[in-house]
């Protein structure tokens, strides 16, 4: 018997953290109104010493809590958008390749190979340095390295579905190949891809942080990666500047994995006894 998704402890824990994060991201302007990059007080106030600035201030005297809250916004937005773009692109290419077969499949899968050989982070790095850092460029750059997994999964699933009787029946009925591929087969290939979507989200959040850390994030928005990078200079004197956004990053990634793991288990009927 498969336990439903919501009866799994890891799903509840991860889900609670993620939900909090998404709420914080969604309501960031309400929770921490004003410009998070504005100076709020004395520079380098340590955390838990000033009730008005609970997490303290950075080198320029900006409110760390406000930065963290607005940074969540970027992380969640970039992580989810990149995963969405990657899953959509991967599903489309994988389904087309698996269904078409022959030369089209060979060509598409070689492209997938090419993208998979280059490390995703290098791809993102190269793309952002060429296209210039903005939120959408970063999203595309991350998706560029993440769409191959969904493409392979979708293709494998489509290959086995392609030979089923209901596909033959649809052909005999006079349905067009595009409709068979994308309306009949693709929805059935979605569950295994959805199961890895959480890994893609987690990786996207990390990649975004890494890009920002290297100064290739969107300069107009606060990001955790940029915060860590900024704090790097005071690592000896004020380590909390890097540690606090670091903890936020780790919590986000871990809770995404937990939710993903639980989702995979309940989607595939896999269960530990």
């Amino acid at each position: 018997m498969t336990r439903p998704f919501l009866r799994r402890p890891e799903a509840l824990l991860g889900g609670a953290i993620l939900l909090a994060l998404i709420l914080i991201a969604g309501f960031a302007p309400l929770i921490a109104p004003g410009d998070p990059l504005a100076i709020a007080g004395r520079p380098l106030i340590p955390p838990f010493t000033d009730a008005g600035l609970p997490l303290g201030t950075d080198r320029l005297g900006r409110d760390l809590l406000a930065e963290l809250i607005h940074g969540a916004r970027t992380s969640v937005a970039v992580g989810l958008s990149a995963a969405l773009v990657a899953v959509f692109a991967g599903m489309t290419v994988g389904t087309a390749a698996g269904f078409a077969g022959g030369a089209i499949e060979a060509a598409l899968m070689r492209i997938v190979d090419a993208f998979q050989i280059v490390p995703g982070f290098l791809l993102a790095l190269a793309f952002v340095s060429v296209a210039g850092p903005s939120l959408w460029v970063v999203v595309l750059a991350i998706a560029l390295g993440a769409w191959t997994g969904p493409a392979r999964l979708a293709r494998a699933r489509v290959l086995s579905l392609r030979e089923s009787d209901f596909v033959a029946a649809a052909k005999v009925m006079g349905m067009s190949p595009a409709e068979i591929a994308f309306r009949q087969i693709m929805p059935l290939a979605l569950p295994p891809v959805l199961a890895v979507a959480s890994v893609i989200v987690a990786a996207a959040v990390l990649t975004e942080a890494a890009l920002s850390f290297l100064g290739l994030g969107d300069p107009n928005s606060v990001t955790w990666g940029a915060m860590i990078a900024e704090g790097r200079n005071q690592l000896r004197s004020a380590a909390y500047l890097s540690i606090i956004p670091g903890i936020a990053l780790v919590l986000t990634v871990i809770s995404t994995y937990l939710v993903g793991e639980a989702l995979t288990d309940s989607l595939t009927g896999r269960d530990k006894r």
Binding site: D165, F166, A169, V172, M173, Q184, P187, L188
Partner: peptide, 15 residues
């Protein structure tokens, strides 16, 4: 020209 298949369980979209 239409066709009816052997396995009535497999000849329709699962949903």
């Amino acid at each position: 020209m239409q066709m009816v298949f052997q396995d009535p369980g497999a000849a329709f979209h699962p949903r």
